[in-house]
């Protein structure tokens, strides 16, 4: 049977209900533990095979050797990263992890360049990213996915 205002009952039912929308910046959104957010680098596990660099579709990762020993640092260009987490899949040594950190907007492009310093080296002061301080980024907690 055709009638206008078919949704009326449904609409009136919702007047007293809480809105389905979330006041986002004021109320944080829960993302699932499996969410592919910012990639975390664990320097101790890295053997410098650079498979991640080779597979990255956006050329967002650079792995550099630091000093004489086999210690590596990673540089992420978060503005290039497409958050596909292919590098996590490519890494055989579990040196890369996804985190649920997704609020990555920055005022300048410079801040989007993120350096994960290798442990023995003192943190480089000028390139300090706002996203996560490099001092503890190397030992950032592994994502719950792992």
């Amino acid at each position: 049977m055709k009638k206008p205002g078919k949704m009326l009952a449904e609409l009136l039912r919702h007047v007293t209900k809480r809105p389905a929308t979330t006041q986002y910046p004021f109320k944080k959104i829960d993302v699932p533990a499996t969410y592919r957010g910012r990639i975390v680098f664990i320097s101790e596990n890295c053997i410098g095979c650079k498979l991640c660099m080779r597979d990255c579709p956006a050329s967002a990762i650079t792995i550099n050797k630091v000093g004489e020993e086999k210690i590596f640092e990673a540089v992420f260009d978060l503005d290039k990263c497409i958050y596909c987490a292919q590098c996590v899949l490519s890494c055989n040594k579990k040196a890369l992890m996804t985190s649920t950190d997704f609020e990555l907007a920055q005022i300048t492009r410079k801040n989007l360049r993120m350096v994960y310093d290798a442990k023995p080296k003192p943190p480089a002061p000028p390139k300090e990213p706002v996203v996560a301080p490099p001092a503890d980024a190397g030992a950032a907690p592994a994502s719950p996915q792992a």
């Binding site: 609409l11 007047v15 809105p19 389905a20 929308t21």
Partner: peptide
Amino acid sequence: ILYARLQNRKG
């Protein structure tokens, strides 16, 4: 606000 609340939005 009424339009929004009927649509289950905050308004």
